[in-house]
Computed example of a mutant assay.
Amino acid sequence: MTRKISVGGKILTGAVALLGATLVLSACDKTQAVFPDKDKGDSAPRMSNEKRETIFGPEGLFGKSKPEGEGVGIGVNAFLWRASLDTVSFMPITTADAFGGTIITDWYQLPETPSERYKVNVFILDRTLRADGVKVSLFKQVRDGSGAWVDVRVDPKMVVDLENSILTRARQLRVVSSEPTQ
């Protein structure tokens, strides 16, 4: 007798599950999918060129996406970017990311001092041409008595001179770009 109750319980559980699934699926019966009608000129919102209002306002969450007059397709100030590349162009560049504003060079030995080598990391921190918009990290190594490279402290004046060189070149590029063409 307990066996019949057990089988009946399974049947009852299955019937309840089937009834629940039927109710869920029947709730979807009255809905219709809405597709854009190309004949009427309708288009999906993601394809539209219309400006849409958002909860973040007309300028988005972080303000304007690009300041006026900035180059398209680059994430940092174009003058600082070009000046940084020009300034470290004599060194082998390992990584250059225009959107993140980073330039990383490989080690470089000056021909005059083969027992020293330098590595430079340039970080462009702003989309505007400002003195604090560029940061340089300079690394120096020298050979010890056994011929191995050893890290040594870099004179902070060298870092400042390199940053000033980049800023001077950026100002020159800005002046040249703003001159009228003849």
Results as ranks from 00 to 15, higher is better:
D97T: 02
V176E: 15
E116K: 08
D39F: 12
D132H: 11
N49H: 11
E116Y: 06
L12N: 09
K119Y: 01
F62Q: 07
D86E: 11
N164M: 14
D132E: 15
E163S: 09
T105W: 00
P45M: 01
G57Y: 00
V122T: 01
K10V: 13
G73Q: 06
R3Q: 14
P45R: 03
A27D: 15
A131M: 12
F56Q: 14
S89P: 07
I11R: 06
T102G: 05
K10C: 12
L167R: 11
T102C: 00
F139V: 01
G69S: 04
E116T: 01
L125I: 04
L173Q: 03
K135N: 12
G71N: 09
L110M: 10
A17K: 06
T2Q: 12
L80Y: 01
R117T: 00
T95S: 10
K4F: 06
V7G: 06
R52D: 11
L19G: 10
D151V: 05
Q141L: 04
D161I: 07
C28Y: 10
I104P: 04
E53T: 13
P67C: 02
S48V: 01
C28R: 10
P36S: 08
S89V: 01
V136W: 04
Q141M: 08
A131I: 14
R52C: 06
G73T: 04
A148R: 05
L18I: 09
G63C: 03
Q182H: 12
T31E: 14
V7S: 10
M91I: 07
